[in-house]
């Protein structure tokens, strides 16, 4: 599963995109967040991190189908 990264998550991960290995594929958005927290502890401290699944805002309970396109969207404040 491919995850598009935006904002500070790009800096935390060090690239614009992230691949979740097939054997690790989380079943829900909440599980994905747990997996991310394990891999990149700095992501854990983001209290407001929006997750888009197939270009729609997704709550933690939302299931992640196998072909899902996921994006991590943190708030940004600059102006």
């Amino acid at each position: 599963m491919e995850i598009l990264l935006f904002g500070i998550t790009r800096e935390i991960v060090g690239q614009n995109q992230l691949t979740v290995p097939t054997q690790d594929r989380p079943e829900t958005v909440g599980k994905l967040k747990e997996w991310l927290a394990q891999q990149y502890p700095a992501l854990q401290k983001l209290s407001s991190l929006a997750v888009a699944v197939d270009s729609e805002y997704a709550d933690d309970a939302q299931p992640l189908p196998s072909g899902a396109e996921v994006a991590l969207i943190p708030p940004v404040s600059g102006g």
Partner: peptide
């Protein structure tokens, strides 16, 4: 909710 300064620049 607003992020804390420690989270986001």
């Amino acid at each position: 909710t607003p992020p804390t300064p420690a989270e986001i620049p």
